[in-house]
Nucleic acid binder design. Structure first.
Lengths: 345, 345
DNA sequence: CTGAAAGCGCTTACAG
DNA sequence: CTGAAAGCGCTTACAG
């Protein structure tokens, strides 16, 4: 393995000069720099990250903690983040939890991240106090997407407001019986979004003078399958809802399926709206409230890079960025069937 | 940051002993080991990977090169691989290409991986000769999923045979006009699967004495949208195909949509079959040929770990594992409409 | 079973 | 602008 010594010897300078030349530091003559660069290229030399890391205390890597790599949403955030991180010379260390509590403990409370990363990016999870404390001991900048934690930078949408956008669309169309397909209680502990979206649902109901009925709030698990099962439940009510607001597009797709399976039409009999603008949404002609996913990954990376550039002993003032969401009306929402229309028997 | 010296001082032994004790090496008395372990825990000590890496020449990290992190298939493979890699004490460095040629060059030909990883895992891409040569200079074990390369370990399905399984199902049902939705020419250069599946399609047609017509082989891009567009094209033929074989489930979902959009029924008018058993497939009641995705990730990790354990100067005999695929009949395939049935006008 | 010491390959004041 | 040298925190023969 060719080392900095080989380059230094080849050029006839010290390793200090090679180091400076290669990293673009000042105090190297142009002529020397050119010769070093040339020799390094010829020798196919790459500095050892381990050695550099040991000398500088930096790893040039950021850890990304993700609940489920298999999901489009997280993959997209990662993709957005990696683009900028890579450009800035950082590697991306993946910590996929896969819904496994043991994995979660290992990452957050164990020592997996210690001395391994310069910064960490947490996707969607709301960490417990113990987990926050554990990450704090890393003494590295942390950014979160879809969760806000004291002392952490964050980027996300306003989940309450986003849910209200969806609900106002439905209410504006004339719907009054609106079911909500959201997350389970356990999910609400781990993820901020489900609870906030439920709050937005209820706020909008109250705002419109509509009754809140816990029978109309069902658990969809944030999966297609869960949305399907949840909506089946909703459709059993009598009178049944004329609209379903699913807290994610994947659940909304399941909802559409459930409606059709029941012999009803979307949107003529039952309207369905989701949140995300998932890559499938356009394809399914799903009305939804879009959030910028890729961009949130980029923004989170930007926040991390800012923090990395800052004086570590200087005042930390992590930014919290809220990105806008917008209603995308496609073909799964419409006014409710008129009261005169025949009801399913 | 507490270092090995702190632990050594606290116990009153040398750093060499601490190092041996912590790593479970022999030649440490039980009593000493216990004291070291205790002190390390109390001091919350974790060895610096950079320092250890510099001393040993190993990074305890494996690089994973993935075409698109946003896709379920790749996410699932990664998840499977990470589980075993993590358990063996390896970190996972993510290199997402995102379909970007510049990113690809940077990863394969640039120096991104040099001195960074102990092994690399390549997903689905068929590397060029130059890329293979470039990775070879890393002098680290490489494993591929969904591609076979001389000197690399690999795991994958038999794409030709898998395509034939799908085709035989269709042919067995009585179909004779079968369209193929596959990848584009450029994709075939990068990925082995599209070409092999096309080969399987043609083999099966020939085997059944059916004519091969390049008009019935259309480009679906391996996306839902692409499958939709491709199938629209297929349905314009007169007589139109009675079945569509899509080389992936995502394209098959698009195909189903296209058939319905044309006012035809699946499977009564047109049958559709895919490959993968994507998480959406069951939901869409899609007939498909299932491949074990998560398991391929695990197997690839196993191969890598085996290679990592081997004597690096010993004889390398990388294994190539082929995992079986199996037909999963659901509700998108049926016998073709009888000749007497009215044709679309 | 244990320790002293060299060495891994960089970076960084410091001196010139 | 350049170099000698110390130091980052481990691991590993080697000696005892």
């Amino acid at each position: 393995m060719t080392s900095i010594k080989d380059v230094a010897a080849s050029v006839g300078v010290s390793t200090a000069t090679v180091s400076r030349a290669l990293r673009g530091l000042p105090r190297v003559s142009d002529e020397t720099r050119v010769r070093v660069l040339k020799a390094a290229a010829e020798l196919d030399y790459v500095a050892s990250p381990s050695a550099a890391g040991l000398a500088t205390g930096q790893t040039r890597a950021v850890g990304v903690i993700v609940p489920f790599v298999t999901r489009w949403f997280y993959g997209s955030v990662i993709q957005g983040a990696e683009e900028l991180l890579r450009e800035a010379g950082y590697d991306l260390l993946l910590y996929n939890l896969g819904g496994d509590q043991a994995a979660r403990d290992r990452v957050f409370r164990g020592h997996l991240l210690r001395k391994r990363v310069d910064a960490v990016l947490v996707l969607s999870l709301t960490p417990t106090d113990a987990e926050v404390a554990s990450l704090a001991r890393l003494d590295r900048p942390v950014a979160a997407v879809g969760a806000t934690v004291d002392g952490w930078a964050s980027v996300g949408i306003d989940d309450v407001a986003t849910a209200r956008i969806a609900m106002r669309h439905l209410i504006g169309l004339g719907h009054r019986r609106i079911g909500y397909v959201g997350g389970s209680l356990e999910e609400q502990l781990d993820f901020a979004a489900p609870l906030d979206r439920l709050t937005g649902y209820r706020d909008a109901m109250v705002e419109a003078g509509l009754p809140i009925d816990s029978c109309w709030e069902v658990v969809g698990d944030f999966t297609v399958r869960g949305g399907l099962a949840a909506t089946r439940l909703l459709l059993e009510a009598d009178p049944r809802p004329t609209a379903v607001f699913a807290a994610s597009d994947e659940m909304a797709v399941g909802a559409v399926h459930a409606v059709r399976e029941a012999g009803l039409r979307v949107p003529e009999d039952v309207s369905v709206i989701g949140i995300d603008d998932h890559e499938m949404a356009e394809f399914f002609e799903l009305t939804t409230v879009a959030q910028p996913v890729h961009e949130q990954g980029q923004l989170a990376a930007t926040l991390l890079l800012e923090a990395l550039d800052e004086d570590p002993d200087g005042p930390a003032h992590p930014r919290a960025i809220t990105v806008p969401t917008r209603l995308v009306v496609r073909r799964t929402t419409a006014p409710p069937p008129s009261a005169a229309a025949p009801r399913r028997t």
